[in-house]
Each structure stands twice: as structure tokens, then as C-alpha cells.
Nucleic acid binder design. Structure first.
Lengths: 154, 154
DNA sequence: CCTTGACCTCAAGTTTACTTGAGGAATTAT
DNA sequence: ATAATTCCTCAAGTAAACTTGAGGTCAAGG
């Protein structure tokens, strides 16, 4: 690495643990905006290490690339992000995370009730209609454990 | 529907809220095993409603189709599943679910620490190495918020 | 200077979870 | 008996998140 503060894509890959191809892909998706040197090669800022690290954590939390791009888009354009900038989007982050956890716990509790009463095979299961807003995450409409009342073979 | 207890694919689709194409796809993946009538059309057992409902809930919990197939594979082949059968796999289910929730909560807690101390831009971030076994779920090796010690531009 | 390793672009392939469409047969309703 | 549904198979398409490969360029070391 030359004296400059800029990193090549390979160096950034090493620092983040990402594949070079993944970084190029992330650029395409707007997660990083490297500049080009005379020869056309990408040069990244050191701040991009953190930017990509954030992407990794966010993915670990279950966010999609476009959701992450939306959050990163809230970082300042010109200057390097400050501690306050990161804190701001981390909080935003936390909100979504809380929702996800809450949803999982609700489902777990309903499952518990089902295990206890055996209602997985009963007609008025608590998981029936457990879907609602929560279930709308999958593709297409669907009922959760919806079963017709006349079906009661143990 | 004829007097028989068997359902056509369209009826099953209505009962579960799934698309007909999705049910065919699930059959291909081994989640249901319909028989065929004289004309070659699929006929499902009423118990398959529950089977597919289970699939929906499991997906809601974040399990992949092959994981679900593994669980369903533990149901009895010949006879209709009993309450005890469902309870058994629901418990199994619950174990995995607990792990997922735990993982989310751990990450949330570390994120909290980071928000509090601003360490998203510090060198010894708690999220650093938060990965470990947990992080191995993504594709390829990756560090979480790993940043080199010399990078401390606020 | 010149070779070797790192980079570049662009196209195509991969996995998961399905959907859509074409061309045709079986059911059901009238 | 027909028309209208519904179903069948098989191939291909979709979205997300990347990887792999081909063919060629750039840069750093000896």
C-alpha cells in the first residue's frame, strides 16, 4: 500500500473478510462509492471498512441490501461519518431489530401453548390467525395453521 | 368435492391459502406425498392441510424448506400423525427457535453497548468478533465490524 | 523492462423459493 | 354432449445475493 490513505479493493477485502467480488457487487448496489485511480482501479476510503462492516452486521440481523442501502444513505455525503452519525443509524436499526425479536417471541409463545394443549391438531389453535400483519412477510397470501373446523382427526 | 375424504390440489390450496403451484413445488421437495387418481390428478389427505400449515409456520420462523422436510420426515409414514407426533416435532422446533431468538438478543445487546459507547467507531468494539459460530450463517468468511486498530477517525 | 499478481468489465451461473406459460388431458356443470 | 374448469407436465422466468469465468489491463518488484 502506498503512502496514501486509499485502499485497493483487495486490501479492503482483507480488512473486511469479504470477497472482492462481493465488494464490487456492493458498489453496484450503492453501498460504497469508491473513486477510480488513473488506471481505472477502485480506491476506497478507510471509512469504507466500517461501512462494509456495518453491512455485515445488518445482514446478520436480517436486513436486505436495499434496506441497508437506505440506512447508509442517511450518512453524510461529503465528510467522514462521525460517532454521532453511526449512533443515529444504529438506533434506527435497533427499532427494527426489536420488532423482529418481538415477532419471534410471540410466535414462540403461541407454539408453546400449542405444545401444551396439543392444539396443533385442534380446531381453535392459537396459531390460527397468528399471521395477520406478521405473516405478510412471506410471498403471497397464506393462513397460519388455518384448518377447517370439521377436521378433527386427533 | 366428492364423498371421499381426499382433496384435490385446488381444494387444498383454498384451505391453506397457498398457490396451487406452491403445493406442487412442495411435493417436489418432499413436503407432501399425494396419491394420484385414475386420471393422474393429485389427491391429498385432510392431514395434509395441517402438514402444509406446519410448513407455513416453520417458514415464518425462518426455517428453510429442507430443514422443514427433515422435521416432517419424522412423522409416521403409514398412519395419520397423532397429537403426540405433532407435539414431538413442535418441541424440536422450539429448540431451534430458542437458539435463533437467543442469537438475535445477543446481537441486540452488543449493539446497545455500541450505541451507548459509540464504539462503532472505536477499535475494541464489542461487536468485533461477535461473529464466531453465529456469523457462519452467511456466505463465505466474514468479520463483524472488524476494523484495524489504527483506524480511529472518530 | 518485463513478468506476475492484482484489477477491470461483462456475461452467465448458483441457491432458495416459487410463479408463469405453453400445450394438452381430465372433471364438472349444464 | 359440450363447454368451462381444473389439472397435468415441463421449461423457463423472478428476486436476492453473490460467485465464477473469459478476455484483457494495470502496477509493483527484480
Amino acid at each position: 500500500m502506498k503512502a496514501s490513505d486509499l485502499l485497493s479493493i483487495g486490501e479492503l477485502a482483507e480488512r473486511t473478510g469479504l470477497a472482492v467480488s462481493a465488494i464490487r457487487f456492493y458498489e453496484e448496489k450503492g453501498l460504497v462509492h469508491p473513486i477510480r485511480n488513473k488506471g481505472g482501479q477502485r480506491r476506497f476510503l478507510r471509512a469504507d471498512i466500517r461501512r462494509l462492516s456495518f453491512v455485515l452486521v445488518a445482514q446478520e440481523f436480517g436486513f436486505t441490501i436495499s434496506e441497508i442501502a437506505a440506512q447508509l444513505g442517511r450518512l453524510p455525503e461529503g465528510r467522514a461519518p462521525t460517532k454521532a452519525d453511526w449512533t443515529r443509524i444504529s438506533r434506527e436499526f435497533r427499532k427494527h431489530l426489536d420488532l423482529r425479536i418481538e415477532r419471534m417471541e410471540t410466535l414462540r409463545d403461541k407454539l408453546d401453548a400449542c405444545i401444551g394443549c396439543g392444539c396443533l391438531s385442534m380446531k381453535s389453535c392459537q396459531l390460527y390467525n397468528a399471521g395477520d400483519a406478521a405473516a405478510r412477510h412471506g410471498r403471497g397470501p397464506r393462513y397460519l395453521l388455518g384448518d377447517s373446523p370439521d377436521v378433527i382427526e386427533t
